[in-house]
Design a protein around this nucleic acid. Structure first.
Length: 667
RNA sequence: GCUUCCUUGGCGCAAUUGGUAGCGCACCGCACUUGUAAUGCGGGGGUUGCGGGUUCGAGUCCCGCAGGGAGCUCCA
């Protein structure tokens, strides 16, 4: 046999010509090959000069192949049970996979279980995934019954944007994967697919599960038909699957909607309407503490506080351009003052008033209320501004996506020369403040304009300068920077600060936007040192995004175990018997005098019951006192984790509590 | 907005094929006076989200609306 030279796992190796990946890697945990950087099936036969590595089932690329192969098994199972189901696409996604089907009747949960059973049978039957190169004409005939696949083949020909469909056809050769029965050699099922796949359905194993069914627009376009999408999760081992399910349970326990109910923080009364929250006393305390601290920091950093009304005549948003671009996202107008005679003719022109979806035009009017000099700049106007947006009903989600919210909104008016320094300033201010609230793992996203999209207004060179300035500031921060092309606001590019929470999920927090457009629209000016009229640049920035949303994110981050400075009740006193209640009341008086939020539980519950109740309420400090403590002028701490320290002198206990509050420590 | 599922006392849940609403927690009262995650007894509270329809009879079936969950699309 002739030999050929390849680079095997980085080492120059001579192998027999014509042997495939199965021979090169006998380790069963190798499920595919990486050939010259590209994933291939194990059946691939290396040619001279190839750089070949094994892809392990446990590595990210391997998991993606496993998940995509599981999607094929799902599709085969569905077509076994519902032969009329037409195939959409079936890619791997984070933690799993999905496959879209066009079916007359949506899948029921019971049917999902039947499909899982059928998948098990397919997995056990050990069908081989066999790659076959086809061409557009042949595939079109072969897949005549699969209209969506035909569309993808057509799109491939036209080099249109395939989106998620890239997994099916992608670049290069058009391929079909046959599922071949190992005994008979018969092809049982096939799918248009770029691959690669695991060698056999048996490799899929048993660490997968179908999770839910939902509708999804074909090719992600809401003008297209909705297909039924089945989601699943798939892992290398059963333990990994279990760990994943436990992570989901952990996330569910932290859900701010659930904790908001359990901890009595806020609610969404049906009578008020979707996406409109009320904060209860406990949530109200937290919100006030959050806002007070933010105000204090803004004051220290040179911001000035303004207030503006919740409604305005339409004219304001016509000038700003919001009505032209975002009327759909605004609550419809209140039509006022119009008078009509008996004949239906308008005798007095009315006015349309809108609830404000943004604060910027109001702050602009504050700026414009008098002639400004370069000496006034930078001018930093801050407001907790309540805005209302008519979010589509399907997107509302707890406090994180609402119809009424309060932004911690500021608009900075600066000269072109001050722009970069001020942006750097703002970014550092934002990051510092977020850290104070307990978030400390960040990365930045730079959202820029999409070429040729008419949504973005303003001259090219202005966009370029704004984008370059933001990019420089972002880079100088030293934080990881992720590009987000097309994500800019219509009036300018933005940096957004993304924060990772305690269990690694990322949340978009603050945004900093540069805007040359609104100063133009409102004809803003300042007199420069040489007496000439100049146009200021605007910086929009919200740090929490909205107070509501930030509240929700912090709730999930802390899983309701708020650090003492934020906790609605910081200390609860539990007397061992009611006769010790007075003693605790004396301590409570001292704590209250120092501003601590403390209550003493005088109810006639057993003390064990009281401990249970306050543990469930996630109170940071419980102070327990009985005869021994009273005799010694002491108190006993019980902490959230159930640990305790007995016999702490009262003054020491008070200092410890104050220390924790003042340093914003977590306990 | 679209697809789909859901809605029973403050909260979490039950109610066989449509037969006239139960439980736990919470709440109120009484007793107990307690040393680290549920003391005992008793009591009150729901025309089953709202509006229509089918039926002798609807929490259960049908239609509409509202609110919620999941996903899609969207997010100035």
């Amino acid at each position: 046999m002739s030999q050929l030279n390849i680079k095997l796992n980085g080492v120059e190796t001579s192998i027999e010509a014509g042997i495939d990946g199965f021979k090169l890697f006998t380790d069963k945990s190798v499920i595919a090959l990486r050939v010259n950087g590209e994933a291939r099936d194990l059946a691939y036969r290396p040619v001279s000069g190839d750089a070949v590595e094994g892809i392990l089932i446990s590595e990210p690329d391997g998991l993606a192949i496993l998940r995509h192969s599981t999607a094929h098994v799902l599709a085969q199972a569905v077509q076994t049970i519902r032969p009329e189901a037409k195939l959409g696409i079936g890619p791997a996604i984070t933690d799993g996979f999905y496959y879209d089907f066009d079916v007359e009747q949506p899948f029921t949960p019971e049917e999902l279980r039947a499909i899982e059973k059928q998948m098990d049978r397919i997995v056990r039957s050990g069908q081989r995934f066999v790659r076959r190169v086809s061409n557009e004409a042949a595939a079109a005939i072969e897949l005549a019954d699969e209209p969506y696949k035909l569309e993808l083949i057509g799109l491939k020909g036209s080099s249109a944007d395939l989106g998620d469909g890239a997994a099916e056809v992608g670049a290069g050769e058009l391929t079909i994967y046959d599922n071949v029965d190992p005994q008979s050699g018969e092809t049982i099922w096939k799918d248009l697919c770029r691959g690669p796949h695991v060698p056999s359905t048996r490799t899929v194993g048993n660490a997968y599960s179908l999770t839910r069914v939902a509708a999804a627009y074909w090719r992600g376009n809401e003008n297209n038909k909705q297909l039924q999408r089945i989601y699943g999760t798939a892992w290398a081992t059963k333990d990994d699957l279990k760990a994943h399910q436990e992570r989901l349970e952990e996330a569910a326990k932290r859900d701010h909607r659930r904790l908001g109910q359990e901890l009595d923080l806020f609610s969404f009364p049906e009578e008020i309407g979707s996406g409109l929250a009320v904060f209860h006393p406990k949530g109200g305390i937290m919100r006030r503490v959050m806002e007070d601290y933010s105000r204090k920091r803004h004051e220290e950093s040179g911001y000035e506080f303004v207030y503006s009304p919740h409604i305005t005549k339409s004219n304001l948003f016509e000038i700003s351009g919001h009505l032209a671009w975002y009327a759909d996202g605004m609550f419809p107008p209140m039509k006022l003052d119009q008078e009509v005679n008996e004949l239906g003719h308008v005798t007095k022109q009315g006015q349309d008033y809108y609830l404000k979806p943004m604060n910027c035009p109001f702050h602009i009017l504050v700026y414009r209320s008098q002639s400004r000099s370069y000496r006034d700049l930078p001018m930093r106007l801050f407001e907790f501004g309540s805005v209302y947006r008519y979010e589509k009903s399907g997107v509302l989600h707890g406090l994180t996506r609402v119809r009424g919210m309060t932004q911690d909104d500021a608009h900075l008016f600066v000269t072109q020369d001050q722009m970069e320094a001020e942006l750097t300033n703002v970014l550092n201010f934002v990051l510092g403040l977020l850290r104070d609230y307990g978030l400390d793992d960040f990365y930045l996203e730079l959202s820029t304009r999409e070429e040729g999209n008419p949504k973005f207004v303003g001259a090219d060179e202005i966009w370029e300068r704004a984008t370059n300035t933001l990019a420089k500031v972002a880079q100088d921060s030293g934080l990881e920077l992720v590009p987000d092309p097309g994500g800019a606001a219509f009036y300018g590019p933005k940096i957004s600060v993304q924060a990772r929470d305690a269990i690694g999920r990322t949340w978009q927090m603050s945004t900093i936007q540069l805007d040359f457009n609104l100063p133009e629209r409102f004809d803003l000016e300042y007199t420069s040192s040489d007496g000439s009229r100049q146009r200021p640049v605007m910086i929009h920035r919200a740090l929490f995004g909205s107070v509501e949303r930030f509240f929700g994110v912090l709730t999930e981050h802390y899983a309701g175990h708020f650090p003492p400075w934020l906790a609605p009740v910081q200390v609860v006193g539990v007397p061992v018997a009611s006769e010790f209640g007075d003693y605790l009341d004396e301590i409570a008086v001292k704590l209250r005098a120092r501003g601590v939020r403390v209550s003493i539980d005088h109810s006639d519950d057993r003390m064990q019951k009281k401990i249970l109740n306050h543990t469930k309420a996630k109170v940071p400090f419980m102070l327990i006192a009985g005869g021994q403590d009273r005799d010694n002028g002491a108190v006993s701490f019980r902490f959230r984790d159930g640990s305790q320290e007995n016999g702490i002198p009262v003054d020491v206990a008070i200092e410890r509590i104050l220390e924790a509050i003042n340093t914003k420590a977590q306990v």
